[in-house]
């Protein structure tokens, strides 16, 4: 989407753009066509344009998953810059947290199946009304579930939603490689990476958890981890 005409005309009078503004502009310009690519793939995957065979379906799902991956990287980098510049503004709206959980389940179930992992969601309620930045919260929870699947070779990944005295807790528990005690303090710091990915895969940039913490903190919630090396990890997100 291009800036409106009036913005463009008044552009010459504006002060030079900051690095963050430039970053936001580039991100926006990349994400718009990426959105079109994703929706185009979805039209075929959802069989709206006709039947597909199993192999075509598999390839297109891979394509769509990787479009999401690019989008997630852009979003994380932008959010990291915004958090650093203290310019993150949340879009808080009321919504049902379970719709986000169901989307995440739909997205990760095939990955868990392919990895031979059991994946389940346990919730105290079918609907959980919350007021939060939906896109960003979905991104945080996807990050945690994605990490859990990535670092678990066998066993299970479980998302458990519980009511707390002040709000709701979402815990993501895995039976994966776990986190060494000496790495725990660095867990939510940016550009930190440790552990190996069983079976190979997306390594990432080590910013996902830093961004997740920044976003949950801004919501007035908390994010923390518990782990037993070799036994698994649990990440707990609480929202007020």
């Amino acid at each position: 989407m291009s800036p409106s005409k009036s913005t463009r005309e008044s552009g010459s009078q504006q002060t030079p753009v900051s690095e963050l503004d430039l970053m936001l502009l580039i991100a926006h310009e990349i994400r718009a066509p990426l959105g079109i690519v994703k929706e185009s793939i979805s039209l075929v995957v959802d069989k709206i344009l006709g039947k597909t065979n199993e192999k075509q379906q598999k390839v297109l799902l891979t394509a769509r998953r990787n479009v999401d991956r690019i989008d997630r990287i852009i979003m994380n980098v932008v959010d990291l810059f915004k958090l650093d510049a203290d310019r993150m503004e949340l879009q808080k709206l009321p919504f049902d947290l379970m719709t986000v959980i169901r989307q995440i389940t739909g997205f990760f179930q095939p990955l868990a199946d392919a990895a031979g992992l059991q994946f389940k969601v346990v919730s105290f309620s079918e609907t959980i009304p919350v007021v939060a930045d939906k896109t960003r919260l979905a991104n945080v929870l996807s990050q945690l579930v994605g990490n859990a699947i990535k670092f678990t070779e066998k066993g299970s990944v479980e998302v458990r939603l519980q009511k707390t005295s002040s709000g709701v807790e979402c815990a993501v528990r895995d039976t994966g490689i776990g986190i060494a005690p000496e790495n725990m303090p660095r867990l939510f710091k940016k550009f930190e990476q440790f552990g190996w990915v069983p079976g190979g895969g997306e390594k990432g940039m080590g910013i996902g958890l830093a961004v997740a913490k920044g976003i949950i903190d801004l919501h007035g919630g908390s994010i923390r981890a518990e782990s037993q090396p070799g036994q698994g990890s649990t990440f707990r997100v609480t929202l007020p």
């Binding site: 989407m1 991100a27 926006h28 929706e39 979003m75 896109t135």
Partner: peptide, 25 residues
């Protein structure tokens, strides 16, 4: 668009019935 600042207060004031962020689910 997902990264645009959405002014929901203004949106409500001008009478919008709902708000969505692209890409749609």
């Amino acid at each position: 668009a997902v990264d645009q600042k959405f002014d929901t207060d203004l949106g409500k004031k001008v009478g919008a019935d709902d708000f969505f962020t692209k890409p749609f689910e």
